[in-house]
Design a protein around this nucleic acid. Structure first.
Length: 305
DNA sequence: CGTCCAGGTCTAC
DNA sequence: GGTAGACCTGGACGC
């Protein structure tokens, strides 16, 4: 992460939707997809740099870093920013960090649980992408392949189809850019394999409706079951991807992410393999936060102390 | 070299 | 509703 001309746009309070504390370092290391392009995470220094599209469709690169213990500094990289764009970027930054998500009732329950009390210092916030579309495509690119393949696919989409910022970085491609991508990019560069058809279909639908179908999933009035039903109807999205998208992009924490990483990881912690139904039973006591409790149990050792 | 599988999903029984 | 087989790709591994 090289030094860039940077302008400080805001210092956002590290507080969640219920006033609860937010651990920035834990948030930046919340899950693997958080580190996929266009995001770049400096784990040692707790810095996130990424490139997003502002209201006018212009790509802007930003940096998020700690400003003291209770605020996060938002900087724009690569040139000056107008006031309205600065407001856009501050809103996007809050969204990326999930600062609107209210974990206070989860913390209240976790505080009385010896195995989970540690989370109340600010764990559990999951980095999100600017759009649900971006998180859906990234998640589909995690399915049935190695992590290096996921990085190659997402990286190629950004590099070849994303809008460039003045800082020389690129945003995740828009639905229309992805829908109109030459087949050679998805096939020969990203090497998406059979996922290319899913990505194209997702992009084409989002381009047609302006992304409204996916972005509407953020509507808090929708019940989890309805959100899950709509996600499962998307091409390439099954139970794993739906749970992952709900937990990360949508701040809906009820479903357990069950995949070839979480199952053996929990088995290792617990000493033996447990069935999926057994896992759900084990975490049912956390109610609408069951999936988050499961995820945090698995990732506690990602951050020391 | 062949087989297996990686942060699964879809289709056809 | 539950369960095999196929599916792009490319590392890891055994032969």
């Amino acid at each position: 992460m090289r030094a860039e001309p940077a302008a400080v746009l805001a210092r956002l309070p590290l507080r969640g939707g219920g006033g609860e504390p937010v651990d920035l370092r834990r948030t930046l290391l919340s899950h693997g997809v958080a580190a996929l392009p266009p995001n770049r995470v400096d784990e040692a220094r707790s810095i996130l740099e990424t490139t997003v599209l502002t209201g006018g469709g212009r790509a802007r690169s930003i940096r998020l870093s700690a400003a003291g213990s209770d605020r996060v500094r938002l900087e724009a990289l690569g040139g000056g920013v107008a006031a309205d764009e600065a407001r856009d970027l501050a809103a996007i930054a809050r969204h990326l960090l999930g600062l609107d998500v209210d974990l206070s009732s989860f913390y209240a329950a976790a505080a009385t649980d010896p195995g989970l009390a540690w989370v109340t210092s600010g764990a559990g916030r999951m980095i999100r992408s600017p759009t649900v579309f971006e998180d859906v495509v990234k998640t589909v690119c995690t399915t049935n392949c190695s992590w290096s393949a996921t990085e190659r696919m997402v990286g190629a989409l950004v590099t070849h189809l994303g809008e460039a910022s003045a800082a020389g970085q690129r945003a995740f491609p828009t639905p229309s850019a992805l829908a109109g991508a030459p087949e050679a990019v998805l096939r020969d560069v990203a090497r998406c394999g059979y996922r290319a058809a899913y990505v194209r279909a997702l992009a084409a639908t989002a381009a047609d409706d302006g992304g409204l179908g996916l972005e509407a999933l953020r509507d808090p009035a929708l019940p989890d079951d309805e959100v899950e039903r709509r996600l499962l109807a998307l091409p390439g999205v099954g139970p794993y991807a739906a749970a992952h998208i709900m937990l990360t992009a949508l701040g809906r924490h009820g479903r357990l992410i069950l995949d070839s990483w979480t199952r053996p990881t929990y088995a290792r912690l617990h000493g033996r393999r447990i069935s999926d139904e057994g896992l759900r039973r084990r975490f049912r006591k956390y109610g609408r936060f069951a999936g988050l409790a499961f995820w945090l149990t698995l990732t506690q050792d990602w951050v020391a102390g």
